[in-house]
Structure formats: structure tokens, C-alpha cells
């Protein structure tokens, strides 16, 4: 779907991006992760030609972006900015209608699509005639997202989309983001410096440093087979949580021992991860939890010790993919 080949961007003597190559398949969410100044944002902005690369090529659906007219290219790519970049002199409705107007949609179509998106993004239609400064930060970010989604472009670029939000709002939006069907069929490239966000949202993560790619792979690959000390150090602080989040109960299913004591009727899906299962213990008065595996149509009731021993058993295996 999107392919970057030997992409470089030099600002004078500084190599902001240095021979970066990656491929994103259709429907995938890829996260560019790194500290500030690592070149991740520059890489992102080259994709819709906000920045022209010094060398290297980018193709979307097999077409070289350099051969396309920039305005036309950009109208086919959704873009979400960190500070939302909403036009302060436009109402919410006008902001969302910017790209449809550029594409010369008729008014009724724009209106219908806007209302649909407002609903999906949990924004009350009463805000349609409000100006951005009358909305909260979270609402503004949703409008920014709506603006990027309205024309239903197949590709979505997101530059630190949730960076300006507080932690509580961000976690809430993460959950909504994953649940949004609009996004499931899109190819998304997101830039972030937040490790948890990358692991929560990314199908694949590209870790960058000093303009180069250090490692790319699934969250599990990065956690359990880090390419070098940089990656290890980068993920160290949240390592335990990330690890627990990255392992699903289905992964450790064979090692779980069923106590057979179903003392209550609460059920937890085996598609959930270890972190959620452990949180389950925190909020229940019982000493065991019931896990349902839809794939094998089994239910196991396990205690805390059994869960942890299955987890360590899983970790000791040589490969975790």
C-alpha cells in the first residue's frame, strides 16, 4: 500500500532522515516511535509532500507520489495534527467541510457525512455551529479527526494526534480509536513519542533514532527480541506493563490449569491480555476468574498463581510470535 524506499532528508549538514525504508500494508496501523528530533515527523510529512525528500522514493498504491500534483495527492490523504490545526474562524461544520468543498461535493452529501461522523465520534450535533475555541481539547481533537476522515481517504497520517491531551482523556480516546469502524479499514501511519500509545494502537512499530530506523516489528517482537540496547532501554520503564499488555490469554491458554471451581458467573474473554486479567483480580472479591475462549469454546476458572505460572511458562518458550 505505502512503500518508502531509501528516504533521506537533509537540512544543510544535518541528516534529519537518513535512508529510511518501510512498507505498510493495507488496513495496517504503523507507528513511528522515537524521541523528539529522531526524524519521525519529517518522515511522516514527506508522505504527503509537506516536505520534499532529498533522495529516495515513496509510492502509494504503486504510484510514485513525486509524480502527482501535490494538492490532489493531499486531498486523498487524511491528516491529523498534534494541535488539531482547526481553522479558528470556521465553525465545526465548516472545518469538517473543508476537504469536501475542495472536492466540490454537493451540500447535502457533505451534511449527511458530517452528521454521520459527528455521531460516530460522540460529538453532539449542537456543536456544528460552534467555533473551535468553544470546545474542550478532546472535542477539538475529535473534530480534527472528523475533518481527516470526512472524505473517506484510504490513508490517514497522524502527527502526535493525542499529544496535547491529558492522560485520562487520552486513554479514553485510545479506546474509542480502536473501536471505531471507520479506522479499521484504513491504512494509518502515526507518529508518537509515547511508548504506551504506540503499543496500544500500533499493529507494527518502527523505532527511530537520529534519522535512522533502529528496529521495526510487532509489539511482541520489539519487547521480547529487542535488536539492541537502545530499544531495550527505550522500552525499559514500561517494560513490565507492555509485556503484560502484549501477551493475550489465548497465547498462554495451553498452560492454564482449570480449577473447575466456578464460584461466580463473571466471564472474561481470552482475547484480552494479561494486564486486563490481572486488573480483573484487583476488582473482584473472588479468588479466581472465569476466562472464556471463543475459539475452543472452553471456559477455565483460574487463580492468581495459576495465571502467573502459565505466563512464566509462556515466557520461557524460545519463540513468542
Amino acid at each position: 500500500m505505502i512503500k518508502a524506499d531509501n528516504l533521506s532528508k537533509h537540512f544543510g549538514a544535518i541528516k534529519a532522515v537518513d535512508k529510511v525504508s518501510f512498507e505498510v500494508t493495507e488496513g495496517e496501523t504503523m507507528v513511528l516511535l522515537g524521541t523528539s528530533g529522531c526524524g519521525k515527523t519529517t518522515t511522516l510529512k514527506m508522505l504527503n509532500r509537506l516536505i520534499e525528500p532529498t533522495s529516495g522514493t515513496i509510492s502509494i498504491n504503486g504510484r510514485d507520489v513525486a509524480s502527482r500534483q501535490p494538492e490532489e495527492l493531499r486531498r486523498g490523504i487524511g491528516y491529523v495534527l498534534q494541535n488539531n490545526g482547526l481553522f479558528p474562524h470556521y465553525t465545526v461544520a465548516q472545518n469538517i467541510a473543508v476537504v469536501p468543498n475542495l472536492l466540490k461535493w454537493d451540500r447535502a452529501k457533505t451534511q449527511k457525512r458530517t452528521t454521520e461522523l459527528m455521531e460516530k465520534l460522540h460529538l453532539s450535533v449542537q456543536y456544528l455551529n460552534a467555533y473551535p475555541n468553544e470546545l474542550s481539547g478532546g472535542q477539538q481533537q475529535r473534530v480534527g479527526l472528523a475533518r481527516a476522515l470526512v472524505a473517506d481517504a484510504p490513508v490517514l497520517l497522524m502527527d502526535e494526534p493525542f499529544g496535547a491531551l491529558d492522560n485520562v482523556t487520552r486513554t479514553k480516546i485510545h479506546a474509542e480509536f480502536k473501536a471505531l469502524d471507520e479506522l479499521k479499514r484504513k491504512t494509518i501511519i502515526m507518529v508518537t513519542h509515547d511508548v504506551q500509545e504506540a503499543f496500544a494502537l500500533g499493529d507494527r512499530i518502527v523505532i527511530m533514532d537520529k534519522g535512522r530506523i533502529v528496529q521495526q516489528g510487532t509489539p511482541q517482537e520489539l519487547l521480547f527480541t529487542p535488536a539492541n540496547d537502545f530499544v531495550k532501554d527505550f522500552l525499559k520503564e514500561q517494560h513490565l506493563q507492555l509485556e503484560l499488555r502484549s501477551v493475550k490469554l489465548t497465547d498462554i491458554w495451553p498452560g492454564l490449569t482449570d480449577t473447575g471451581r466456578k464460584t461466580h458467573t463473571d466471564l472474561l474473554s481470552a482475547d484480552e491480555n494479561m494486564w486486563t486479567a490481572l486488573e480483573g483480580f484487583k476488582f473482584t472479591q473472588h479468588d479466581n476468574i472465569n476466562i472464556i475462549n471463543q475459539h475452543t469454546r472452553e471456559i477455565k476458572s483460574v487463580g492468581f498463581e495459576a495465571l502467573m505460572s502459565a505466563y512464566y511458562q509462556y515466557k520461557k518458550q524460545p519463540h513468542h510470535e
Binding site: N48, L50, E72, R74, Y79, G85, V99, L102, R147
Partner: peptide, 9 residues
């Protein structure tokens, strides 16, 4: 804001 305008085409 200018960047958003450019990015939207």
C-alpha cells in the same frame, strides 16, 4: 493552521 490547510490540499 497553515500546515493543516496545506495538508488538506
Amino acid at each position: 493552521i497553515k500546515e493543516a490547510a496545506v495538508a488538506m490540499g
